[in-house]
Simulated scan of single mutants.
Amino acid sequence: MNIDIDIDKWLGHLSRFLSIIRPKAYNVITRLVVGAGITLVISQSRIFEAMIVAGFESYFGRSEVLRDYLDQDSNLHWGTFLIVVGMVYHLLMTVGTDLVNTQLQRVPKYPELKLGVVNADGEELSGDSIQLRGAICEVPPEDEIPNYVKVINVPGGRNGFNMFGGMSTGFMVQGLNDKFFKERAKFLRTWGGSELLYFMISNDSRILAKNVSVCLVIRRDVGVAVDNTNDDFPDIPSKQKSQRFDFLQPNSIQSYDIRRGHSDQEYIFTWNVGDVQAGTVVESKTAIFIRSDRNTVIRATTYCDDLPEPISKEYQVEAATKEITQIMVSDLKVDDAEFAAILDNAVMDGYLGRRAEKEFNKYQHESQEHLPD
């Protein structure tokens, strides 16, 4: 690739050099030089040699070297040299210039940038259509969802009194997440029928694309929710309370390469890509979370300092085609295996299971990977 770029640069230098040595009367110059060579070859007199000496010395002064050379019997060599020079000059001015210009026309003047979309599984989406996977979930109202409570019964004495004389039929298990069922409902409502979208920019030309950026705009319609995130593996609700104490944790500032800036009517995201080398692909590290119960549009505009104008593109986002899943309170109380089956149907056609397997395989590999310190 670097060799091609160097050749293009040298072709540009050669084109400028040929334009400098190619005056309007280059045909006349060719005829004079070739004619002079022919004359020297067939001439039997010294008149033409005298004209050469007079012309040269009128500009540069007396030259004994030229006189000595022409005094020799070198008409044939001198004439042949002039004929060759004239013909080479003519070829450069005609065929050579045309060849260089033809090659330069094949060199792209602007970088060729292409915007692509990748889903959560790393599959590049073809065309201008984005199909959301899974199923929209309708969950019970929060006030109808009970708290998660687990009671362990303790054997008591007669009339419900235990051996210590206290009235005790059981006690609450500490450390449990009492909002477990509500969090399951919220998870299904949020992630059902959603998708994580990553974006990539490819430079298919042999020219460096400088200062590339992409702007993504989506209308804030009812039923459409969009955000940026660096987390491609959301935490599934757990029965146990988190043991983290956030006030003891140092504040960690998230770094997003796709930044958000919403208005009242639109979701607006900006991806500052930077320079994109020739023949390379740059992928975003931040994903766009989108959940929609209706079709919508993503308007994408690519900017680059080396382009005469921005590149505009629209993606048609199609809502999940599966039938809406009605979640009952009983569905929120099932065991983990049954709830995983509900998630497989609702969230990106089983993405969470595939992602968990990928993490498990990664852990197994790293646990058996013995590297020097």
Rank of each mutant, 00 (worst) to 15 (best):
V329R: 09
S45N: 14
T280Y: 09
I207G: 00
F289R: 01
L132N: 06
F17Y: 14
A54I: 04
L99T: 11
E323Q: 15
G274M: 09
G170Y: 04
L307M: 05
R189G: 03
Y363W: 15
Y89A: 04
W191T: 00
L248G: 01
S58R: 15
L371M: 11
M87F: 14
M51V: 12
D71C: 01
A25I: 08
N2C: 01
P140T: 06
I258C: 05
V149H: 02
A54W: 11
I218N: 00
T321D: 12
D128T: 12
L352P: 01
S43T: 15
D221T: 05
I201E: 03
Y89H: 08
M328W: 02
R219W: 01
L66W: 05
S63Q: 10
N230Y: 04
I21N: 02
T325G: 00
E366D: 13
V84Y: 10
V297C: 05
V28I: 14
R354C: 02
I288G: 02
A341N: 12
Q254L: 14
S255C: 08
L14E: 06
N162M: 04
I324G: 01
E183H: 11
L18T: 06
A50Y: 12
M93Q: 10
P140I: 11
A25Q: 10
G86H: 05
S312D: 12
S312P: 00
W78D: 06
P372Q: 06
D8H: 10
T30A: 11
K9F: 10
V217Y: 01
A287Y: 07
R294K: 15
V118L: 12
I47R: 10
Y267G: 03
G165S: 07
V212L: 06
V276E: 06
S205Y: 10
H262W: 09
Q131D: 13
D68Y: 04
G261F: 09
Q240A: 02
E323L: 10
D331I: 09
L371T: 13
K182W: 02
G79F: 04
A340I: 11
T94E: 11
D98N: 10
P308C: 08
Y59T: 11
N153D: 13
T30Q: 10
L125D: 04
F233G: 01
S330M: 07
H90T: 01
W191Q: 05
E195A: 15
S19H: 08
F56G: 01
I52C: 07
H365T: 14
G165Q: 03
G193S: 05
L197G: 06
W78V: 15
G261L: 07
E112W: 03
R259A: 11
G166D: 15
V100G: 07
N272D: 14
V329E: 08
R31P: 00
L343D: 02
N361S: 09
E124D: 07
D227R: 11
Y89T: 04
E366F: 10
R260A: 13
L11A: 09
R22P: 00
F233V: 09
Y69A: 13
E283F: 14
N159C: 07
K362L: 11
L99D: 01
V173T: 09
A337P: 00
P234L: 09
V334F: 07
L216F: 15
V154C: 00
L371G: 01
G353C: 03
Q368L: 13
H262A: 10
S213Y: 06
N147D: 15
T190N: 08
L216S: 00
V28R: 12
D305M: 06
I324C: 11
D6M: 11
G55V: 08
L99Q: 07
K114N: 08
E366R: 12
D143V: 13
E357Q: 14
